[in-house]
């Protein structure tokens, strides 16, 4: 065991893991978080807390993680390189561990251009690969980047993202291999819609033995409507939404599109579960946390296994 988090134990035991996601509020009301998080209780093994996603200012990820811990839930702290230099990153990691956070997801971060403060100065002192290596160094060598020995180490279960749909496609498995070499323990992928392309990526990863070196959690996001599907298809770079799903959503009356979207998501989870090399799913029900019980139930992911 590297960190002994619930997520790590689930994966180590060979269970098909389920992680959820919670986006912090644009305000300081802890009740909003508690309400969202309750929908995820006993439905997922751990909960990603996003770090000012899309570069929009929200309550800080670490504070939300602490609230989840107090609720008896397990958080995955998302940490981006956009807003912190190596001093702040290492400092935050020490603080996160002291607060009981055991899973950390290392990300470059969405560019500030997309957010609510496009005028800001960005950082990118490290990239996501170097962030992974930094966390690993702190964990395994007990040292900061400066070689300063830590008084009291950090035992994190280290995660990172992978986008099988970004270009150049041929480099995507290489990038996964690099993240593993840098020290990643688990990967959560970008939302998958193009199952064939994902399969091609996964086959390559399997061929290179990469899926044996880290746990791959396949990312899924239920489509709420034709509008959302079209938006993701056209405007979210690095997302690949095949026309077939849009046709399916269009085929039902507007009121039933959400239900159809959930049906698609459940089918995807069932297909992903059958794929060699997929250790779990990362269910990103964006501002739709209350649908997680229904989706996990329908996808036969409940009850979540017990681990100690």
């Amino acid at each position: 065991m590297k960190a002994g988090s619930r997520l790590e134990k689930i994966l180590e035991a060979g269970h098909f893991a389920v992680t959820g996601e919670l986006g912090p509020p644009r305000g300081a009301d802890a009740e909003v978080i508690k309400k969202k998080a309750e929908h995820l209780r006993n439905k997922v093994d751990s909960i990603n807390v996003t770090d000012n996603q899309t570069s929009v200012v929200r309550m800080c990820s670490m504070a939300v993680c602490k609230i989840l811990i107090e609720m008896g839930l397990e958080p995955n702290l998302q940490m981006v390189c956009r807003d912190r230099n190596r001093i702040a990153i290492q400092s935050d990691l020490l603080g996160a561990y002291a607060l009981g956070i055991r899973n950390v997801l290392c990300l470059s971060g969405d560019h500030n251009k997309f957010g609510d403060h496009p005028q800001c100065k960005n950082v990118f002192d490290l990239d996501s690969m170097q962030l992974i290596a930094t966390v690993k160094r702190m964990r395994d060598e007990g040292k900061l980047l400066s070689d300063q020995e830590l008084e009291g180490g950090v035992k994190f279960f280290i995660g990172a993202a992978a986008n099988p749909f970004g270009d150049p496609f041929e480099f995507r498995v290489t990038r996964l291999a690099k993240k593993i070499e840098a020290g990643v323990d688990f990967i959560q992928t970008q939302c998958i819609y193009n199952m064939e392309k994902f399969k091609t990526w996964l086959d390559q990863a399997n061929d290179e033995g990469l899926t044996e070196k880290c746990y791959i959690l396949a990312g899924v996001t239920p489509l709420k409507s034709v509008g959302m599907a079209r938006y993701m298809q056209k405007f979210v770079p690095g997302l690949d939404v095949p026309e077939e799903y849009i046709t399916r959503l269009k085929g039902v009356e507007k009121k039933k599109q959400a239900a159809e979207g959930i049906k698609i998501c459940v089918e995807q989870i069932e297909q992903l579960r059958e794929m060699k090399g997929v250790a779990g799913v990362h269910l990103m029900a964006i501002e739709w946390e209350h649908k997680v019980p229904e989706i996990t139930e329908a996808a036969k992911l409940l009850p979540r296994p017990e681990v100690d």
Binding site: D127, S128, Q130, R175, K178, Q190, P237
Partner: peptide
């Protein structure tokens, strides 16, 4: 745009930056 040193981020699409 992000001064990445280890490969393209997930936003690289069709040869263009996100």
């Amino acid at each position: 745009s992000k001064s990445l040193m280890n490969g393209p981020c997930g936003g690289s699409a069709g040869g263009k930056c996100e």
